[in-house]
Amino acid sequence: MTAPSPAPTAHRTLITGGARSGKSVVAEHLLSGVPQVACLLPGPIPNAEADPEWAARIAIHQARRPAHWLTVETSDLATGIAEARGAVLIDCLGTWVTAVMDELQGWDAPESQWRNAFDARLAGFIRQWTLAAGPLVAVTNEVGMGLVPDYKSGRLFRDLLGTVNQAVAAASDDVLLVVAGRTLRL
């Protein structure tokens, strides 16, 4: 799969789009000529026995990336960016929101029990996103363009990721929307 993408001119780039739109391919292409890249992966660690579909999905991403890229599985994006040498690829912010909410046990808890901690994690990430030498590329899912989710957790995820996407976009030099493998600069 190839996805046309713009030349890597921006210091901080957010790439958004729907599921299976080609976002990760575009992100990897933007950093393809960079000698040192840290891939921050905040999603669940792949386990072929517990979730073979997730493990297969991650294996496809890993096989596409150059072998010399460093893989860091962490939900602490602020520290991951601060400790990275060279470029940073975050893939993806949707799995980060899920990981943070899991850590905070916030899915079923009242907002008053988790909101300050979530906002602090987001603020720390944005602070490092703006301070890092870069280049930095973050992949995220575009949410809120479809139906309102039936379940509270789905609505909460959509709302939180929408907030995260807005914050990262505001702190980015470039924002790209990927639709059907095509890249649009926003």
Rank of each mutant, 00 (worst) to 15 (best):
M1P: 09
M1A: 05
A3N: 05
P4G: 13
P4T: 10
A7H: 14
A10Y: 05
T13C: 10
I15Q: 01
G17N: 09
A19E: 09
S21H: 12
K23L: 08
K23S: 03
S24R: 01
S24M: 03
E28A: 10
E28R: 13
L31P: 01
L31Q: 00
S32D: 04
G33P: 06
P35D: 14
V37I: 08
V37R: 01
A38T: 14
A38R: 09
A38C: 14
C39Y: 14
C39M: 12
L40P: 00
P42E: 03
G43A: 14
G43L: 12
P44D: 09
N47W: 07
N47F: 02
A48V: 14
E49R: 14
E49C: 08
A50C: 03
D51R: 04
A55F: 06
R57G: 01
I58C: 09
I60D: 03
I60Y: 07
H61I: 00
H61C: 05
R65G: 01
P66E: 03
L70M: 14
L70H: 08
L70Q: 09
L70V: 13
T71E: 12
V72A: 01
S75Q: 07
S75H: 08
L77T: 06
L77I: 09
G80Q: 03
G80K: 05
G80N: 07
I81L: 12
A82N: 14
A82C: 12
E83D: 15
A84S: 09
R85W: 04
G86N: 07
I90L: 15
I90S: 00
D91T: 00
L93Y: 02
T95Q: 04
T98C: 02
A99R: 03
V100S: 02
E103K: 08
E103R: 06
G106Y: 11
W107A: 07
W107Q: 11
W107G: 07
D108W: 11
P110L: 10
P110D: 13
E111D: 10
Q113M: 13
W114A: 00
R115K: 15
N116T: 12
A117N: 15
A117R: 13
R121L: 03
L122H: 08
L122A: 04
A123M: 13
A123H: 11
F125P: 01
F125R: 02
I126M: 09
R127T: 06
T130P: 00
G134V: 05
P135A: 02
L136Q: 01
L136V: 06
L136T: 03
V139F: 05
N141V: 15
E142R: 07
V143L: 11
V143E: 02
G146V: 13
G146M: 15
P149L: 10
D150R: 11
G154D: 14
R155V: 10
R155P: 12
F157T: 02
R158D: 15
L161W: 07
G162R: 03
V164W: 07
N165C: 12
Q166S: 10
A167V: 04
A169G: 07
A170D: 12
A170G: 05
A170L: 15
S172Y: 04
D174H: 08
V175Y: 00
L176Y: 03
L176T: 00
L177P: 00
V179W: 13
A180I: 08
R182H: 06
L184R: 13
R185C: 08
L186M: 06
L186R: 13
L186A: 05
